[in-house]
Design a binder for these strands. Structure first.
Lengths: 203, 203
DNA sequence: TATTGTACCTAACAACCGTTAGATTGTCAA
DNA sequence: TTGACAATCTAACGGTTGTTAGGTACAATA
């Protein structure tokens, strides 16, 4: 991939994730990349095309990551290991919610989702529906092999995921993504996961 | 309050909540209100002042509503009634999350909070910290009068509130606020509340 | 009747927006 | 050496932005 084009994409995402798509001008991007405005149009058809390419790249990352998690789940189905949860959560937290690229994209999505139908669909899919569906599958599996007793796996998924989503919104999608905020999130999220399973065992 | 000024505020909030502050121009607002751009500056110092007045009004509404809920709580402290929860939730849902004005403000906040530190504080306070603190107080009370057994009231509040926050984000802050989406939210939220108290009783 | 203040208007300002036409480089293959 | 191509530039376009100076119409007041 062309070096300048990549730099445009990087800077654009950086600014878009801070101020939103419409609040950032081509000239803002060019000032940071240190090129003239017209040069952008050699690499991209128009401003929208920059956004499209960023989103497409995110979706390919997210798709890969989620299929990786789903694969880990089907393997577990045969050879159960206790650390499945820690593995998947760690992956979901570090390589998704707190990953520099993905985190910026999700910020951009959350700014733009109210004015852009296309983006709203992407947001709903990757931040609500897909994670909840995955978690539902996990609990269905744990129920089917009788590790936990019969229950509504869909509601279990909500109870499990909702606090994580809340902590993420509270600490990972406000202001700059500092190490301190990351630690706040990790602390809260892992405490929740521990409590969740403690309660699971006791019933 | 002046009629034209009120109309400017109404239209501005409507557009801000859909597209964000910076994406809406004074001229966009004037087209709907049917006045000339310069007339806006008779009622407001500048564009920012419109936003400030909207936010200030929201904070006075939210303050009133929350102190109303807290008052209901201290009364309950003496004469316990079982429907405290239904009352407060109904109030929180209908007069806050789904109220036309408050809902629009919260949409605006969620668009703008990533680029505006002031707004980020308002968002965190009224959507995370204040509701969670209130819920913590509720559970502390229920524990102190032994309606529920000893537990971490702060974590109880998270377990109670997080699914409500998730459902609100999924149904009340995406696209237009339709009656259908409202019903989706109510259905999910009240089902959660019921389940939550069923589990509470059984342990 | 003259004056004052309110609520709007017309018209323009400098700055900025996305985008384009066309010129200018440097680097290769023929 | 010539030609082709990629990658950048200069310069400008028509339109939009927030904001302001100054004028107008009308009601209330003195």
């Amino acid at each position: 991939m062309n070096e300048t084009k990549q730099k445009i994409l990087d800077v654009a995402l950086d600014l878009f994730s801070q101020n939103g798509f419409s609040a950032v001008s081509i000239r803002d991007i060019c000032k940071v990349v240190d090129i003239k405005e017209s040069s952008v149009y050699y690499h991209f058809k128009n401003k929208q095309a920059i956004l499209d390419e960023l989103l497409q790249h995110f979706e390919s990352i997210a798709t890969g990551l989620m299929s990786q998690l789903e694969q880990a789940l089907t393997i577990t189905q045969k050879t159960i290991k206790g650390n499945l949860f820690e593995q998947t959560c760690d992956c979901f937290f570090e390589k998704y919610l707190m990953d520099e690229y993905c985190n910026k994209i999700m910020r951009l999505l959350s700014i733009e989702r109210l004015s852009n139908n296309e983006i709203q669909k992407i947001y709903n899919y990757w931040i609500f529906d897909k994670p909840l569906n995955f978690q539902t599958k996990v609990f269905s599996l744990l129920i089917s092999i009788r590790i936990i007793k019969t229950a509504d796996s869909k509601y279990l998924a909500v109870k499990f995921y909702a606090p994580i989503y809340l902590f993420a919104q509270r600490w990972l999608f406000c202001g700059t993504l500092t190490d301190e905020h990351k630690q706040f999130f990790r602390g809260n999220a892992y405490e929740h996961i521990n409590n969740f399973f403690k309660e699971m065992e006791s019933t």
